[in-house]
């Protein structure tokens, strides 16, 4: 069982590599919506990474942080999209 739970540390490392790929897109992206897409992808990976950390360290409270982060990142994405299309808030 201990082996299974520490596997999730490897999951976090793999997710970090994936978010580095998305980060390259955030840095290189020619237009602003490209960067927003990259940030949105990184947000989802960070949520999953938080949950994996919670399992690996057996700390249940990390998962609550992941829920709050999911909702907040969703709202920030909506606000940036609203700003890009030029509407007033």
């Amino acid at each position: 069982m201990i082996d299974l739970l520490t596997t999730y540390l490897l999951v976090v490392i793999a997710l970090m590599l994936c978010s580095i790929l998305a980060l390259i897109r955030v840095i290189r992206g020619p237009t602003a919506p490209d960067r927003v897409v990259g940030v949105d992808t990184i947000n989802t990976m960070v949520i999953v990474g938080m949950i994996a950390f919670g399992v690996a360290y057996r700390e249940v409270i990390y998962i609550d942080v992941a829920i709050v982060y999911a909702l907040l990142s969703f709202i920030s994405t909506l606000f940036i999209a609203r700003y890009l299309e030029g509407g007033d808030f």
């Binding site: 237009t31 602003a32 919506p33 927003v36 897409v37 949105d40 969703f74 994405t77 909506l78 940036i80 999209a81 609203r82 890009l84 299309e85 030029g86």
Partner: peptide, 13 residues
């Protein structure tokens, strides 16, 4: 929903 918002914003800009 986030993807839809980004796509709409991209098309309108």
């Amino acid at each position: 929903v986030g993807a839809h918002a980004i796509a709409r914003a991209a098309h309108r800009s």
